[in-house]
Design a protein around this nucleic acid. Structure first.
Lengths: 217, 217
DNA sequence: GGACTATACGGAGGGTTCCTCCGGTTGTGC
DNA sequence: GCACAACCGGAGGAACCCTCCGTATAGTCC
């Protein structure tokens, strides 16, 4: 559930201040989860009191951890990215390289749709400061994609002329378009298409499409 | 002040229902103006009560005319487009073709910066229905630009290989970038640059840049 | 194990905004 | 000039925002 890299303080500053007290850390985690839910349902404008309620915590606690709505949005966003990135090496241990890639991409779709209004909310609230966040996130996502694609390529299960950014771009682009047309079925179809395209022309090609067996969203 | 094409009912449906009563029409207009102001100042999330207050009208009246925030945003948006489009032929009567074009583009800058958060607010609130609005608006804007550019080209005052969409795209793109960098001076400079570029290579070229005398925003 | 303190918690409360509802007012057609 | 449909205003209940402070507890030192 929790990712190992998320027990930092509220802000991005990495000053070595004393770690959170146990109960505080617990509540922080619960708040983050509740906020993820609420933002997914109602967008970034969802009620903060609702979030506190779902986390089983008073509003005061919420405000102490995240003094600002933007601050909360940022942390939820980072948390979401953490999870996606952390999944990459884990999947690689459990599945064969191509399936790992396919499953990861499926998770990435979830990430993209969850982050829906977050980026614009962040950009609006933090101005130019947001650039640093996005740059960081971008880099980490590319790293994860690179890891998986590289493995699939080395195993001869993905064409060698594809690049990590190709995947990120095409998938996130697809999600935007699909979100606009409100059609989850289409998302699935196009996703399968991209993945098959990725495999097409790979050295070890017995390219019978079998991208159906994704864990569905 | 009012544009001739704006006395329609609240929604986009063009059913020929009886015209608004005189006082209602007045109030509608006042509300639209107030909303334009408030949205420009505080974005699409500006207070509705504040809008009613500025229009010198009760909230009830506001809600009767515009049952939904999205509805109000849409009308303000359309109203804004109406004004920009209606200005084109008028300018063409009053000024020489190139000055008309330059002045219009200057007004267009105002429009772009005013519409700041509106498009995303609309898209969010109305989903796929918003596409029709944007298509319509897009077409009308291109029509206006085409009228002015055509005239300038015929008069030999603008290069002939430019197209209306070039202007719309470059100017609105410029505005976004400029808005991000919070620098109105830069906007002016870049705008002058675009306009001079438009004139460069025109048949009747005594191309001494004189794009300074724009009515400033 | 017990006591002490920095840290964290909860929720009451004052202010703002949202939206609805209905009694009173006014424009319009006859 | 009259009657009525159309319109107006703003009170009021609900939801939300954010702050503040008395209370509870985790961590530490003896």
């Amino acid at each position: 559930m929790g990712t190992q890299a998320t027990d930092g303080r509220t802000s991005g500053s990495d000053q070595p201040c004393r770690p959170l007290r146990a109960d505080a850390a617990r509540n922080r985690e619960k708040l983050l989860e509740a906020a993820t839910e609420v933002f997914a349902e109602h967008g970034t404008e969802g009620s903060l009191e609702e979030i506190a309620r779902r986390a089983g915590v008073g509003v005061g606690t919420l405000y102490r951890h995240f003094p600002t709505r933007a601050c909360l949005v940022e942390q939820v966003y980072r948390h979401s990215v953490d999870e996606v990135c952390a999944a990459a090496p884990r999947l690689l241990e459990q599945l064969d390289p191509f399936d790992a890639l396919a499953t990861w991409v499926d998770g990435f779709v979830g990430y993209v749709s969850r982050k829906k209004g977050m980026t614009s909310a962040l950009r609006e609230a933090m101005g130019p400061d947001s650039d640093a966040i996005f740059a960081d996130v971008h880099e980490r996502l590319e790293g994860a994609a690179s890891l998986l694609l590289g493995a699939a390529q080395q195993a001869g299960m993905a064409r060698t002329d594809a690049e990590p950014l190709d995947i990120l771009r095409s998938v996130s682009g697809m999600c935007m378009a699909a979100a606009a047309s409100q059609d989850p079925e289409r998302t699935k179809r196009v996703l399968a298409l991209v993945l098959d395209g990725l495999r097409y022309g790979a050295p070890a090609a017995e390219a019978s499409p079998r991208t159906e067996n994704l864990a569905s969203v």
